[in-house]
Nucleic acid binder design. Sequence first.
DNA 1: AGTCTGATTGTTACC
DNA 2: GGTAACAATCAGACT
Length: 106
Amino acid sequence: MPKEKSTTRKGGKERVQRRKKDPNAPKRGLSAYMFFANDNRDKVREENPGITFGQVGKMLGDKWKALTETERKPYDAKAATDKKRYEEEKAKYQAQLAEASEEESS
DNA sequence: AGTCTGATTGTTACC
DNA sequence: GGTAACAATCAGACT
């Protein structure tokens, strides 16, 4: 493992729309957790009717890690698929940059 | 060359 | 509409 830095907002401040140097911002693909949540959100809520987001989120994360790589596989696979999608965006995004640069040469 | 931070993604629930 | 923990992630910016 590279580094175990708490992915949690260190400052716990507003991390909404920030730094955006990308012209067309190729956004990133979804994370395995996103797909995991997509499949668990309704399931967790079903077993926990009336559960608030705070509980769902924490519980989801706990279960997420509870899963083994094998169980994460399908989710990771989806994440990888989404990543590919992002790759296309990134490719186009960079292609546009190159094009713009070329035109700029004019 | 290597690291690290910042930005982004999606969920639900509430104001 | 936006924000809040939850986790991943990845690419660009920085040293």
